[in-house]
Nucleic acid binder design. Structure first.
Lengths: 201, 201
DNA sequence: GGCGGCTGATGACAAATGTCATCGGAACCG
DNA sequence: CGGTTCCGATGACATTTGTCATCAGCCGCC
């Protein structure tokens, strides 16, 4: 029996996945969570073979949850699911030590196969995603540029960004200007969008 | 046998829903689509009792698809599912003539019950959503203000918005300024976000 | 018939944003 | 040691964006 903890904030899909996985005979869902931090504590309690994590889970996202889980339960293998497969995310997820990565364009029966593979010690990365990630450009942006873009996505003004980062306004403008040039965008908002789409932030 | 067409762009959840509904005995999924326009033509072909539509489906969203479906197949009843239940959306969906509205925080078994209710001629609206919608403020924005905000969400500049809408730049600035005042926002981007969160666009 | 709201526009002005050149310090690498 | 890159800053400047007053036509409504 392969013991699994499932975390996804969307009830409908989580319950659907759990029901279908439960019918697979060799898979047992021992606990489920609707957010990242619950997932961390549930894994600590149940120590399953596999934890299946949604990437998009506010406030703690899947990669962050996986990082914490793999630190406290190094024998548990983490498999990430994602809705929108942004290229750079795979790179960050691999760096966090995850074992499997599937897009939500996978059927649940296929997912079950992947979970068996992972339990058997193999890794699984969706080939489409892997190809994307290999073709993807490495992030050309510096840490501070990424900081400024992250805050831009929250609709903050340059002044607010400067305050938050404890920088001068002009410095923030410089970072954003540089980020816009690197992403060939015409506004900081568009640049932030590009960085997001690429999975850089 | 209740005949159903299901449309959701997310494969994993669509296949999961379809599998679980199929086990219900009295429900039969006769076709499925991963976008709005396919859903419209499938309903035209199969003329099911019910069409189950995801709200968030690019490029044609669920409300738009429902509108077209109910025009060409007035006997089919439309049920909308949504991930993020923005208050104003329910109002627009009801205006489009949908019969059921469920959030994706519903389990699939509960969904099956709702579909039976709807097939039996009843309406179903998630009570949580209904309460939200009743408390929600009516949209204070004019059509043109909404147009400008919609384009703002795509990170277009004022100039680009003006070109797209065939307006003078100054006019667009006026609309946006007015929208910002009505939404108590400090930038057009924030105003667009508010309008989106409220379900006005 | 007048009032109010929506649409569309203009002009003037202030504030925010983006561009560019330039500087200094720190860290890293060959 | 020198070169390069990142970080942080400044000042001057152009452009974009937002504000405000004002105007005109159109429509619906009392």
């Amino acid at each position: 029996m392969i013991r699994i903890v499932v975390a996804d904030d969307e009830e409908m899909i989580r319950t659907a996945i759990v029901s279908l996985l439960a019918m697979e005979g060799d898979l047992e869902v021992v606990a489920q969570a609707d957010n990242g931090s619950d997932a961390v504590s549930l894994v600590r309690r149940h120590v399953p073979e596999i934890v299946l994590l949604d990437l998009e889970m506010p406030p703690t996202d899947g990669i962050e949850a996986a990082t914490q889980i793999l630190r406290s339960a190094p024998d548990t293998r983490a498999v990430l699911m994602t809705r929108h497969a942004r290229p750079g995310v795979l790179r960050r997820a691999m760096a966090a030590g995850i074992t499997g990565f599937v897009p939500k364009s996978t059927s649940v029966s296929r997912l079950a196969e992947v979970l068996r593979d992972v339990a058997a010690g193999r890794r699984y990365v969706d080939p489409e995603l892997a190809a994307q990630a290999l073709n993807a450009d490495a992030c050309p942006l510096t840490d501070r540029e990424l900081d400024a873009l992250r805050l831009t996505r929250t609709h903050a003004s340059v002044q607010q960004i400067a305050e938050t980062l404890h920088l001068a306004e002009g410095t923030v403008r410089n970072y954003l200007s540089s980020a816009m040039a690197k992403t060939q965008s015409e506004s900081r908002h568009a640049a932030a969008e590009v960085a997001w789409q690429q999975g850089w932030i």
